[in-house]
């Protein structure tokens, strides 16, 4: 049995340690790539070239000079690294699943851990931001291997709570980031109303205009996509506590249309601003999200 099975949420749920989860997800993903166009993502130097005027003398490879009596400088991959930020929505609404193995939050954690693992193994510095109505926790980006442990331990300690204010939180993040970074947002994007959606999109634009690359992982529970309920149901909002009675079957198609329209709205908005939008639900394998990251990374270099 290959490690690819760990890409399935129901399998990864059986592993409790987050570091192992991340490791298995990434290994499973990489094994599945085969003749991957992304071959060579590692901490290797990529090329030697003749020293030219203006080059930093620090970069001269003295070993080569000893052998060849010529100045060469070596160019390392460190030059291609980007700083990544994992922005996790930890509002109470994320702690939900109807009949899946992982909640939206668990799913987001697994995905974030895997991405952190992947990035750090490529010596990309990665930081962590957790927000609900504002940024609640943060970890600065680093690329050391020891940093991964810190990242994962923080991720493991995160508990979803409170209401969400994505727009405000994203504005905070935009203000916080000094350098051009890759911001990966993990959220269900469930906001109060249309104006909140607009605010949220504006905040995303602002982040993008700040020069950051944004990947938006829109994570919904499968029940939030398919609405599988039957009969009379009384539904309660976990964030506001409001209750509504609806007829499951009668409501399904209308609901699905709505949620699809919502996803479509965000996708369109993201396309316009070159934000990568990845619509996920908790029944999907992790590789879709990872692939999205790699494609995004490649397109940058």
């Amino acid at each position: 049995m290959s490690v690819e099975k760990y890409l399935k949420p129901e399998v990864i749920n059986q592993i409790k340690r987050l570091d192992l989860r991340a490791q298995f997800v990434v290994k499973g993903f990489l094994q599945g790539l085969h003749a991957s166009p992304f071959h060579g993502f590692s901490v290797e130097f990529s090329e030697h070239r003749r020293y030219a005027h203006g080059d930093d003398p620090k970069d001269i490879d003295w070993l080569v000079y000893a052998k060849t009596d010529k100045y060469y400088v070596k160019k390392f991959e460190a030059e291609t690294n980007i700083t990544g930020y994992l922005a996790m929505d930890i509002s109470a609404g994320m702690d939900y699943t109807y009949n899946q193995d992982l909640t939206k939050f668990d799913y987001a954690i697994c995905l974030a851990a895997a991405l952190a693992y992947l990035m750090i193994s490529q010596q990309d510095p990665v930081g962590l931001l957790a927000f609900n109505d504002k940024i609640r926790k943060s970890l600065p980006p680093k690329s050391k291997r020891t940093h991964l442990g810190n990242m994962l331990s923080m991720l493991a300690r995160l508990k979803p709570h409170g209401t969400t204010d994505i727009a405000g939180s994203l504005q905070q993040i935009a203000a916080m980031l000094k350098h051009r970074s890759l911001v990966m947002i993990f959220s269900d994007l469930l906001v109060e109303d249309e104006s909140a959606v607009e605010d949220m999109l504006n905040s995303l634009y602002r982040l993008r205009h700040g020069g950051h690359d944004v990947i938006l992982f829109h994570i919904l529970d499968q029940a939030e996509v398919d609405f599988p309920f039957t009969g009379l149901c009384e539904m309660e909002d976990p964030e506001t506590g409001r209750k509504i009675k609806v007829d499951g079957q009668g409501f399904r198609s209308e609901y699905k249309k709505q949620i699809e329209a919502y996803r479509e709205t965000i996708r369109t908005a993201c396309q316009q601003t070159n934000i990568d939008y990845v619509a996920l639900d908790t029944s999907m394998q992790f590789d879709k999200a990872l692939m999205e990251y790699l494609i995004s990374r490649r397109s940058r270099f």
Partner: peptide
């Protein structure tokens, strides 16, 4: 009615009356 927690209430609320 079955009691359920459901975060995506915004979409439910919008069509509740018709439903």
């Amino acid at each position: 009615p079955k009691s359920l927690i459901f975060p995506a209430m915004r979409f439910v609320r919008e069509n509740q009356k018709t439903n």
